[in-house]
Every structure is written in structure tokens, then in C-alpha cells.
Design a binder for these strands. Structure first.
Length: 586
RNA sequence: GCGCCCGUAGCUCAGCUGGAUAGAGUAAUCGGCUUCGAACCGAUUGGUCGGGGGUUCGAAUCCCUCCGGGCGCGCCA
């Protein structure tokens, strides 16, 4: 409908050009918006205001000329000039009501579009290091990424979801040594736990598992373990980083091929836990991409070679640098260290290259806001690889602060004191967690009120929306109890019986769903859908209180049944996009 | 010091590619169940859109500047 009005305006402008009222080379962008106030009709256009200056006419005169040249249409009841020069369109009842038929025919597909034109999009989210269970900070990225991916798919993109597993770095070796030490301690060998190792209880669990697998096979004496190892930070001349690195080296030497067994057990256990956690949260992936596999396949070398050939690399101080400043970064970045090891960034260049080589047009990398300094070099890498930096989108997810009983819950990752995603899910439920996480726009700092998320009351916006859906389902139960059919099919041809203020509002709101989804898709902003659903639920609840659906008059009843059936469908489609269930009763 | 994000009602937040009188929820007050689920609805109260300049017919929205809060600025990941 919006599109149709745009076409009418376009024709009117063409006519005005023919008449010589406006210049031929003028081609303003026509912008038709849904009105906020019903008094302003259904659709409004500000074209006259925008053009007034360049044609030297006052806006209201301009608007009048445009309206005079507007072709007639069956769908439009009247067109008026309002305010400073807005053109307001009032749609006919039949035209506005036809949306109900559209919704019921489209079903779960209502709201879908083809705006993505089947473009391939790669979206990466969470990608937390597998060194421990996910915490509530990861949860927001998980909910956001999964929802954006679903929205993009719904709007016509071919979506590929990936979790990048940092299984190649030093952190993984620290993890392995942590597990080994807990295993030794459990076996009564008095080793002092290194300050830089992982402290959570889950390390003990993995150590226990190791013990049942290998028995005492990996026991070594304290003297062997600490032979030649730099002292830890709490001792004189100690260095905590050197300490742990030396321990890793000793562990590899002492355990030989069994070191790999410890290493693999640790990562398998933790990654397995993360996978299960996310799956239970409704957050899924097409692929878990291993950083190690980049090395094994020689992709890091390939990437470095490519950038070298293009002249974007140079050597300085024994290291190899990427000229990211040529693409707007603050400083150049090291890719190969003096000691010959590649950096984390080198892996990321290779990963970006691989994403592009696999044919993705759009690459979305959901990062925590604390990584924002990383964005310029990622864009630089993209551009150096020959892509357009606009193909890369990096939504930055701000931290969520948990509140319980009005008090902030403090968290410290280092001390292993944090609320895990699993704890949160068990506490408030998957639906509320998914809903609350995407309720605010991502770049907004968020207060996550646990009590509110958990409360099954009218304060909780998620229940408010779900309640609207359940209420409609209840209407249909009433119908069948009274022996009346679900006659929404007949109702769609009786739209003229929908005449109350609330009915008109609801119809208008339903037809805004497609635009809302498209906006959410374009801006990678799921929170628009949350707000929309809240408004739709509100309109429905108002209607429910004002007008009754299950009534004697057959024509009106059928019309109303079709209306609420459409509302139910839109609520369900919206909630599904958010990863939240649409219950039939609650 | 430089860079990024944020600042809108008592509280939590929408609106930000410039448009009509700045909106929701919540809190506070009042009212509504013999009628499809009161987990609901209706009404009232509540604003220097952080401050100040500028651009514009029109600024919460764009530009400059200052203030306040968060986060970055490694041959860590």
C-alpha cells in the first residue's frame, strides 16, 4: 500500500513536470510514512515540504498542486493537506482491511520479504574462548546474534552462522596446565596452583574426569614439575607470565604425547558444555570454526602472502607489520612477531579472507563493546583483501549489568565469580532471557532486572505479549465450546463490519509488521520488533476490553474472528523471530 | 592525551538517514470484573531531550564546543 501511494505521487510529479510547474531535472526522493496519529490519516508524505524551497513555492501550495495531479485510486478515500504542508492519505476500509486476508494466507511466512535478494551473509557471534563456561555477558551476544541471523533469513538473506573457536592460543595451554595441576592436587601431589591459571570449579571436574581416564599415569614429582621454572609473582624476582609459560613447557616435556590428551580433554569438555548451553538457549550454528584449522590448512600463510604481494606488509624490528594505517587505522599492526609466531590478528585476517573466499557478500561480526578498538583494523584487513569495508558490519554489544532486589550483582572473571548463562537461564527461563537480552538496542548499556524477568506478572513485558497470544487462543477455545466454527475464512470477506476505533487501530498496526521486520533487518536491530509487539499486544488488549468477539451477530463475529486470528499470527511470527515461545495458554 | 559508545519523565528505555503537540513501560493517584482469561483496560500527574553555540522553513535527530558516565589505545587474546 505504501508502495502504491509512492507510485501515485510519482505520477503526479511527472504530470507537474509536463505542465511545466516544476523543473524536469528535479527528482526528489519520495518518502511515505505511516502516521502516528489517526487524525493524520493512514499514510503521510512530506514531499511538498522538501520540494518547496527548490521550486520557490510555499509548501501548502506545492502540496495542493501535487494533490490536484494525483491519479484516482480505489484504495484511497481522501487526501488532505495538513500542518505546514504534509499530504495525508486516508485509506478506504476495504483497502486497509485486506491485510487480514494477506496475513491469514501467508501464515508463518507473513512478514517475510526478499529485501536480502538471496545475498549470502556470514554472521559470527559469541566466539568466546573455550576456557570456561559462558557467562551472562556472552548471553547477550548469543541472543542478539541468533535473533539477527533469524531476522536476516526471514528477510531474504542466505545466512551462515559461525562460532570461531580460539583453540590455538596460549590460553588453551594455560587451560591444559590448570587441569593437570588440579589432577595432581587431587592425587595428593603438593603443587602450588599458578596465579595465572583458571580457577573455576569446572577445572576440578575436568581433572576428575582425567583421573578416571588415566589413573595415576600422569603423576610427576614436584621436583620434576618445577625444574628450572621461573618463580611466580608472589615470590621474589617472580614473573607470573614466565612462570606459567615455563610450566607449560615442562608439562609438554614431561607428559610427551599424553600432554595432547590433557589438552584435548579440556577443550572437548568445555566446548561440549558451551555447545549444549547454546543449543538449549535456541542459539545454533552451521559451523564451529577452528582457529587451529586455519593454520593446518595454511590459510594464515596464504593471507600474509596475499597482503605482501599487494605491498601492504613491511618488516621492522624483526617483526612483520601490516600497513593498516593506509586504511584509516591509528597505527600499523604486527602480524608475525619477532619470535616467528603469528598474532591473533593474523588469524583474523586469514579468517576474514576465508569468509570472503567462501563467497559471502556481507560479513557480520558481533563483538563485545570492549573490543571496539579492534574494528578499524578488521575493516582495514577487509579492504586490503580487496573487499569493500562496508561489507563488514561489527555490532558492538554493550555489557549487561545484572540487578537482583535492586542491587547490582558484581562479577569478577578472574576470581571465577560470575553468573553463568546457564544459571541465568535456570533462574528466569529461556524465553525471558532471550527477550530481555534483545529488548534494548545493542549499543545501549543494559540493566538486566532479574526479578522483573522472573516475575509472572503484568510488570513483565514478555508476559504481556505472550498473554495477548494466549488470550486469542482462548477465544478460539470459547468458539469451539459454543459449537461455533473457527470462521476466520469467511470473516476475511466481511471486513466492512470492522468499524470500531480499536479495530481500525489493530488493522493499521498489523500492516506495519512487514516494515518493522525490514527495519530490524536493515539496522540489525531486533529491539524494533520487541517494541512493535508490545504495541500490537497493547492494541489487542484494549480491543479485547472494549469489544467482544464471541457474539451472536454472525457477520460481525466472523469479521472479528478473522481479525484476532491475524493478530495471533503476527504475535506468533514476531515472538518466533525473537526466539521466544508463543504459548496457547499460560 | 587520542579514539569509540552512552546522556530523553523519579526509575528503565523508545524515537536519532531532520518533520506535525517529544512517546512507552514502571512508580504515584483515581476508576473499571453477573459479559470471550483483571497476567487486562481507561484516566490523571510527571520533560531546560546533559549545558551552550551554529545550520535549517523546521533540530531530541546534523555540525562545533564544553560537562558527566562507560570502554579502548600490546610483538595479549
Amino acid at each position: 500500500m505504501k508502495h502504491q501511494v509512492e507510485q501515485l505521487l510519482l505520477q503526479s510529479l511527472e504530470q507537474l513536470k509536463k505542465q511545466g510547474d516544476i523543473a524536469h531535472d528535479l527528482s526528489p526522493e519520495i518518502q511515505v510514512d505511516r502516521t502516528r496519529d489517526a487524525a493524520h490519516g493512514d499514510l503521510a508524505c512530506n514531499i511538498a515540504l522538501m520540494m518547496a524551497k527548490s521550486v520557490g513555492m510555499n509548501p501548502r501550495q506545492m502540496a495542493e498542486k501535487i494533490i490536484n495531479c494525483l491519479p484516482v485510486s480505489d484504495n484511497i478515500e481522501k487526501v488532505v493537506i495538513a500542518g505546514p504542508g504534509f499530504i495525508n492519505f486516508f485509506l478506504t476500509q476495504a483497502s486497509a482491511g485486506s491485510i487480514i486476508k494477506t496475513v491469514l494466507e501467508a501464515g508463518v511466512q507473513f512478514g517475510a520479504s526478499s529485501r536480502g535478494k538471496n545475498q549470502r551473509v556470514h554472521i559470527e557471534y559469541v566466539s568466546a574462548n573455550p576456557t570456561g563456561p559462558l557467562h551472562v555477558g556472552h548471553g547477550r551476544g548469543a541472543a542478539y546474534g541468533a535473533t539477527v541471523a533469524d531476522i536476516l533469513e526471514f528477510t531474504g538473506y542466505k545466512v551462515h552462522r559461525e562460532y570461531y573457536v580460539n583453540d590455538a592460543g596460549r590460553q588453551m595451554h594455560i587451560l591444559a596446565v590448570s587441569v593437570w595441576f588440579r589432577y595432581l592436587q587431587a592425587g595428593g601431589i603438593p603443587v602450588k596452583y599458578p596465579s595465572q591459571s583458571y580457577r573455576g570449579d569446572y577445572i576440578r571436574d575436568i581433572a576428575q574426569l582425567l583421573s578416571t581416564k588415566v589413573g595415576d599415569k600422569l603423576y610427576k614429582t614436584e621436583a620434576e614439575i618445577f625444574a628450572g621454572v621461573c618463580k611466580d609473582e608472589d615470590e621474589e624476582n617472580g614473573d607470573k607470565e614466565k612462570h606459567i609459560d615455563d610450566l607449560i613447557a615442562n608439562a609438554k616435556k614431561l607428559l610427551k604425547e599424553d600432554y595432547q590428551l590433557v589438552f584435548q580433554l579440556a577443550i572437548d569438555e568445555i566446548l561440549g558444555d558451551i555447545k549444549q548451553d547454546l543449543a538449549e538457549f535456541g542459539v545454533n550454528y552451521q559451523r564451529w570454526f577452528s582457529e587451529q584449522s586455519l593454520m593446518d590448512r595454511g590459510l594464515i600463510d596464504d593471507a600474509i602472502r596475499r597482503l605482501t604481494e599487494k605491498g601492504y606488509m613491511y618488516e621492522k624490528g624483526g617483526a612483520l607489520w601490516f600497513k593498516s594505517t593506509e586504511f584509516g587505522d591509528d597505527k600499523d599492526r604486527v602480524v608475525v612477531r619477532e619470535n616467528g609466531q603469528t598474532t591473533y590478528f593474523a588469524s583474523d585476517i586469514a579468517y576474514s579472507m576465508d569468509k570472503l573466499d567462501r563467497g559471502h557478500h556481507l560479513i557480520i561480526n558481533v563483538l563485545g563493546a570492549d573490543h571496539h578498538g579492534y574494528v578499524p583494523r578488521l575493516k582495514a584487513a577487509m579492504e586490503a583483501l580487496g573487499a569493500n569495508p562496508d561489507q563488514l558490519h561489527v555490532p558492538l554489544v554493550q555489557f549487561a549489568v545484572l540487578y537482583r532486589h535492586g542491587e547490582k550483582i558484581s562479577m569478577s572473571t578472574r576470581a571465577g565469580e560470575f553468573v553463568t548463562l546457564r544459571q541465568l537461564r535456570e533462574d528466569v527461563g529461556n524465553d525471558a532471557a532471550r527477550f530481555f537480552y534483545v529488548m534494548r538496542k545493542v549499543e545501549q548499556h543494559m540493566d538486566f532486572d532479574l526479578d522483573l524477568a522472573k516475575s509472572q506478572s503484568n510488570d513483565n513485558p514478555m508476559y504481556y505479549i505472550q498473554y495477548a497470544h494466549a488470550r486469542i487462543c482462548s477465544i478460539f477455545r470459547q468458539l469451539s465450546e459454543k459449537g461455533l466454527d473457527d470462521n476466520s475464512a469467511q470473516g476475511v470477506d466481511k471486513i466492512e463490519y470492522l468499524t470500531t476505533r480499536h479495530e481500525k487501530e489493530l488493522i493499521k498496526k498489523i500492516s506495519a509488521f512487514v516494515e518493522t521486520v525490514n527495519k530490524a533487518s536493515e539496522e540489525l536491530a531486533p529491539h524494533h520488533i520487541v517494541h512493535y509487539l508490545r504495541e500490537l499486544a497493547n492494541d489487542f488488549h484494549s480491543y479485547y476490553n472494549a469489544d467482544k468477539v464471541v457474539i451472536e451477530d454472525e457477520s460481525i463475529r466472523q469479521a472479528r474472528v478473522s481479525l484476532v486470528a491475524a493478530v495471533r499470527q503476527v504475535l506468533a511470527n514476531g515472538l518466533t523471530l525473537l526466539g521466544v515461545t508463543a504459548p496457547e495458554q499460560m
